[in-house]
Each structure stands twice: as C-alpha cells, then as structure tokens.
Design a protein around this nucleic acid. Sequence first.
RNA 1: GGGCUCGUGGCGGAACAGGUAUACGCAAGGGACUUAAAAUCCCUGGCCGCAAGGCAUGUGGGUUCGAUUCCCACCGGGCCCACCA
Length: 906
Amino acid sequence: MSTPRDFQEYESKWQKAWEEQGLYHASQPGERKTGEKFYGLIEFPFPSGAGLHVGHPRSYVAIDVLTRKKRMEGKNVLYPIGWDAFGLPTENYAIKMHVKPQDATAANISNFRRQMQSMGFGFDWNREVNTTDPAYYKWTQWMFLQFFKSEFDASTGRAVYVKDREAPVKENRSEERGARSEGNSPRPTPHAPRPDRMAYKSTTTINWCPSCKIGLANEESIGGVCERCGTSVEKREKAQWMIRITTYAERLIEDLSKVNYLERIKKQQIDWIGRSEGAMIDFGAWGVGRGAWEDQIIRVFTTRPDTLFGVTYVVLAPEHPFVEEWVKSGAIKNADEVKAYQKETTKKADVDRTAEGKDKTGVKLDGVTAINPANGEEVPVFIADYVLAGYGTGAVMAVPAHDRRDFDFAQFYSLAIKEVIKLPEGVTKKQVTRGTGLGNWVGHPIEFQITDALGKILGFEYQNLGATCHDCPGTLINSGTFNGLQTEDAKKKISSWIEEQKKGGPTVTYKLRDWIFSRQRYWGEPIPIVICPSCGYVPVPEDQLPVLLPDVDSYEPTENGESPLAKIRSWVETTCPHCGGKAERETDTMPNWAGSSWYFMRYCDPHNDAAFASPEALKYWMPVDLYDGGMEHTTLHLLYSRFWHKMMWDLGLIPESVGSEPYKARVSHGLILAAGGEKMSKSKGNVINPDEVVGEYGADVFRCYMMFIGPYDQHAPWDTNGIEGVKRFLDKVWRLFEEERGARSEEREDQTVELETIYNQSMKKITADIDGLAFNTAISQLMILTNAFTDAGGVPENMVEGYIKILAPFAPHLAEELWSSDGHRSGSVHMSGWPQYDASKIVSAVFELVIQVNGKVRDRIQVASDISEADAKAKALASEKVQNYLAGKEPKQVIYVKGKLVSIVI
RNA sequence: GGGCUCGUGGCGGAACAGGUAUACGCAAGGGACUUAAAAUCCCUGGCCGCAAGGCAUGUGGGUUCGAUUCCCACCGGGCCCACCA
C-alpha cells in the first residue's frame, strides 16, 4: 500500500521554509547574484472585501511558472506583488459599514496575502507595495507635481520642465475645452496665453455619474454608462485637473513598434487613440454682425476634403461656443428655438444621443449662413446633436451626397443634395445596396463628368473608375468622386489648395481626450496643490510631501459634487507656500489609475525614501520583460502607464537607457468562467472560492489545474471533474516515488531506450511550451511522461532529477518534497538548474512510415529512421496493400516526405 | 455599420513553414482486486457497416499527390468599437 500524499503537511512546511530562506528574493544590482535579470509582472490586484477570485490566480500561476523556470536557469528574477488599494469600492464599503477605508483596506490586504501565500507563489514579499501607504503615495504626489511643473514642447514632442518650477499658475479662466489636441480647439484663435502645463486645471464638460457622484474619464464612461455602476452618465461643467495625454497621442501609437505586445492589444490601443487624417477648412460666417464675412470663421474638420464642392450646409454641435455668442449678439433670429434645442441636448445622456438609427434632429440658425471657401457659395447653418462637441472642431461641413449621416439629416429637412460628380443628362442612377457609404451609384451609360471647379483644382476633367456594379453591367461611381489612390490624391490636392488659400489645411485629429485626473472623493491621493486667492495654483513644496489624507469620520460624497475633503475645514485651510497668505488646499483626489501608473518602478527599489527608485535600480530592472494583464485594461491602465512612463522619461527622471516604453512584452489571459460557460457572479451563485479548492486539493493540484484548463489566452469554464483528473496525475507522480521505484531494478534494455526518447522529448517540449506560454500542452506532456514511467514501473535513476526539476515550476511543493526526501540532495530544487535534454536521443531508431495511395492512408510499415529515399519508396511499393491498388500498373508519381510518408499516385 | 476572433468526439481541448486528425484530460461502458465500497489497475470507444470499405475538423467551391491548416464565398458563435464627420 502506498502512503497517501499529505499535501497539507508538506505544502505549508515548504512555504515556511522558502520564506525563511528568502528563496524568492531578488538581488539588487551589485548584490550577490550575477546572472541576467528577468522581470515578470502581473497586474497588482485591488484588494476587495470578497477575497481573491479564482480568475486572479490564473495569471499569477502562469507567470510564476515562467519565472520559476527563469530562476532555475540562473536568472536573477524579480516577481513582485502589491496592492492597488485606493478606489471607490472600498470607500463605498466604508460608508456603508461605518468603518475607515484604511482599516477595511488593511483587512482585505491581509486576506489576499494569506490566500496568495497558500498557493505557493514565488513572489518577493520583501518588495510588497501598497498605493495607499503614505510612503508610496508621497511619490505619486511628487510625480503629479513634476507634471504640473512641466509643459509640452511641440518642437521636440516631449514634456520639459518650465523655467521657474516653483512658480504658481494663475487660474485659467479661458473656455478651453478638455478635448484639446493640435488643431482640436473649437476656437480657431485662442485668445489669452494659456499655461501649457502637462497637468492643468480646466473647466470642462465631464461625464458625471449621478450614482457614484464622481467625474469619469472618457475611458470610464463606456457606451454612455458608468463603467463601475452602469448608471447613465450625465454631462456636467466642472473645473477638473487634467493631464495632457493628447500631446503624446502620436508617440503612443508610434512606439508600439518598439514593443512585443499581442497584435490585438496593439490594435485596440491604436483604435482608442483614433488617429484620423483630414483637413481643417474655414467657412466664413455671414450675418453674425461682423462687417466682412472673413471676420468670423467657422472652422470645420473633415476627412473628405475632396467633397468640398458638394457641401450644402454646415452643422455646429449644439454646445459650440459660437451658438451662445450669436444668440447673445442677436444674430440668430430664432433664438428661443435654438435655446430650447440646446437645453434638450444637455439633458440627454450620451447613450440616447449617439444611439444609431436614431432620427437626426437639429435646428436651423436663422440669420446666419456660411460661405464655402472653395466657390463662395452661401449655405445654411444648423445645430444638430449628431455633431459632437468634443471631436474635431465641433463643426462639420455637410455633404449629403457622400455621407450617410448628412444624407439622413438632409432627407429629414429636405436640404439640397449635391454630388461632386455630375452625371450626364439622361443617366439613370440607383443606389447600390452593397459597398461602403451612401455614395455608390450606378450610372448608365459609363461616362460621367466631374464639376469644372473641382476638375481644375485636381488638374483633370474626366475620370473613369472602371469598377462594375454588383447587380448590373453598369459602371460604379465611388462614394467619393474617385476610388483607391485617386481619392487619396484628390484629398491631398484639395487640402493643399485650401492651405494655399489660407483657409485651413491638412491636419490630424485624435479621438483620445485629455485625461481627467480629478476625483471628488476621499479614498485617493490628495492632489498636492494649494489654491491661493492671489497667487493661483501653488505646488506644495516637495519637502512637505506627502500631503496626508486627513483622518475623518464621514466619507459621504457631497451633493454639490465637491470632495468629502472639502468639509474638513481644518485640513483645507492652510497658508500659501508662495506668499504666505491664507489659502486652501485642493480637495480633489487622484483616480486610482495614478498609483498603478508607476508601481512597476517602485518594485525596483521599494524601500527608497529619497527617490521613487534609484537610477541604478531602474537601469538594472527596467523595462519589464513580460507583463500579463486583462484585456479590460488595454485602453485604461496600459495606455496611462505607458504615457506616464514616457513623461517621466522625457523629464529625465528615468535613465535614458531604460527607453521610452515600460514593458517589453504584454500578454493577456482568458477569464475563468463558471461551469456553464457563463461569467462567475455572486448573484448567479456560481462562484468558485479558491480557498476551498486549495483546502481540498492543495496548492499544487490547483496550480496544475489552472495551467491545464485550456489555452492560456482563451476563456475557460471551470470543471470540477477536470480538477479530479489533475489530482490523479499528481497522486501518480507521488506513487512513482513512494512505492514502485524499487521495481525498476530489473530494467529492460528496449524499455530504457524508449524511456530515454520520451524523456528527452518531454524536456524539450515542456521547456519550449513554458517559454511560449502553452501551459496546457506542457502539463499534458508531463502526464505522458508520468504515464510512461508508471508503465515502466518506475523512474530510471538518471532521469529522476530532471523529472523532479521539470515538475517544479508547476507543482513546487511536491517537487521540493520529492527532491529532499532522498536525503542525499542538498538545497532547493527551485535553485537546482534547469534540466537539459540530449537531442540525439529524441529521435527513435525506427519510425512508422505511412503509405498513401491517391492521398489516402493505405498502409503503415516500421522502417529504420535513417532509411534512404530509394529504399523507402521501394518498400512502400512492395507493400501488399499497395500492390492490390496498383493491380500491375505503374504508379504515375511517387513522393517521399522524409521521416513521414510515401505518397503514391496511380 | 466597422474591426477582431473562433467553429475539430458526449465535454475541455491536441495537431497548422500543408504530410498518420481526434494527443492529454474528463465523462461513459466492460472487466480485475474487495464481503462491499473507495482507491488503484486492465480493456473499449469519431460515425455507418458483420466485414471489405465508406464518410468525418460549420457549409459550398478552389489550389495540391495530399487541406483542420492556404485561397474565395457563405452560415453560425463570441468579443471590442460605434452618429469620430
């Protein structure tokens, strides 16, 4: 009888031993280890009250397996862990349960830590960080101040410090919008000089969640609802701290070429940034009370400058500043109607406003017209909510003949539809249902003509497309005057003509908005700024950091949208560091994306209190070699932290040699779903508690199952039976060593050769699979190897160590127990070196040659591995089955694939 | 509407520089051991057929000696974005 495996006993024994030995502590540069570094990173969790979800450990185990292998290979491995602990859920919990967020966080962290430690991760617990620790957020605040003290230098495309860093910034009362990027302002000519600080305060329309009572970043308002609670988001005007991420839009796209991210992650980032090439075009505003129409211009953004001659009206977003101005000046005759429409728009949540298929609405501005700079045509001006204030210039030129939305609107209001391509008399046309856009028309007969004016600009008069209609033999006229390259050509020509005329010119816009950095909540890093009535925004002197969160009793958000901190007068009231007069502290706090934007740097040197990390430590450890995280963080955390790193690098706070990107590689894991394939959720009652699994099966079974459950990058449903199978596998490993090893004494020669082959194959495959994150097939190969040993009656002596070693990353406790149980091995298996394989033993002496006749497998014969092509073909043709098919005829063709098959064509 | 992905046994999934489809595991059936059960071990297993053989990787075509893999069209899931001018 075998002794049952008592994992309870040895798992905790080894966990303790490893901790005491400091087995997983990474050495700082210059310390004992000399090996190359490897920095593996998983997203540090938010310590919620619910404890660790089974989904969390999937990536922790995966990167643990990988880093354990790297460590065994002799690398100096950094695999750190910490807590992203600021955030709304804890604050809400604190309000509900009448506890302090600090206390709730501490309790949650110790629960998470206990859970993680029970799973045997090789985390370096010496480097644990916590974003809510004043010793940590001191540096988050310090970094914010660096951004406040720097500005964007357009000539180099980098953030640079301003000349007088400690100088206050006067309150900025201009109407600048949050959504500024190059050429992205609703005003063509901004008046007052505006401080171009990387961190700036600005009154802006924000997404306001009425339930959380908090302003949301654009990225947090998904489909018009709050990402956290699902409540419809409202618009609100509010002064907010912003970070000028839009200035980095281009580099955030470009630098993706320097890193090794999954393609879909790169693509999602690029789409989010939403680069779009087009042109700004200035239309004159006529009837607004200025003398000449050039005095006030409506600047529009378009990606289709080639359709300029098809403009039949101009549309402004209802929020466009001109509208209010013209209402005030009396230029608009139907002001009441316009005001009513504006009011209606602000009431609507974004979801309603942007729902597709919704009828287009709008109001004509009576008394105002626009002048087309290309041909001097006067066209009507509308406001309509299908034009978004935050994108482009908040104004568009409408070309109903070539744009679906403009067409819908024109239909509704019976506006002119003017094609850029003029069809000859008598040509019938019908709309084609397939293809892009509205403007695909079929013209019969083939000839058509473009307007004279456009033709002159483009330098030609006639253009034949040559594309044929799907439904009839007629020629297809593309939506935009021309197709393919010709459209691009037309766009370029018109854009540069516009530029020559000084009526705008080519430009690039982005969907990306500046990062709203203010939160009107308690549980976050206080923004270290003092607001002085005479000086303006004054940075808190760096030697006074951190600005501590005050100890308070109530965390309720205020009805007027101010932070709960605003109520704590003793904290708010302070003196101005600049003039010494009475002043108040900024009461906004930072979003929880702040602390997580740089935690990977703190891990490099977590106990440093003179700097966020020493340059030596950063130089040695950064960039992160492999970063694993959820797809849901691709447009939030990943983008923010890349941006943050770039700003710091530009300012010289990160050594030049680290490079502009913080992560060399980024991978993503699939979710663990409930048994039915649904998401696990408390309400459905289908949540698996990892504590129970670890308690019942042990950490090693849990870990191996996590790795075996399916392809790492795909979602996988939890299967209670599946875990039983993995338990049996590890029991089998145990038994191999417990009872049957002696049975291997009477070895058989042929069996040993076979085991050699499978052993060496396994070492090779598992090694490659770990590096390729193909953990499920690595486990299956371990099972194959284990089954082979079981069949053979034990593990041959010369394979014992390699076998335990290759098992070690997956089942570290069992491997350590087996490693030590012999008594003649010293040290830990986890530092024992990675097993090598003998390539010469991977190929067996014979193989099964497959014989195909006309593509179908008809026979298989055993042949020597080094068989010659001629012999293989001869043997194949000599096969009885092949002879039956040949029936005396000569084969037309015989193909030999080395080591695989012979294919005979009759 | 746009983009990205994926369709292989009863289930999770293997195998794609084109070369033995269904590895490994689960579940299932049969057997051994046991007074019995658990545990363990052995055997069977894509489908149809007694067999020879035929048909099988969502469907239909194509390229090839040979296609799960490449190309075209379609069908069906999933995810993301979406009035971005």
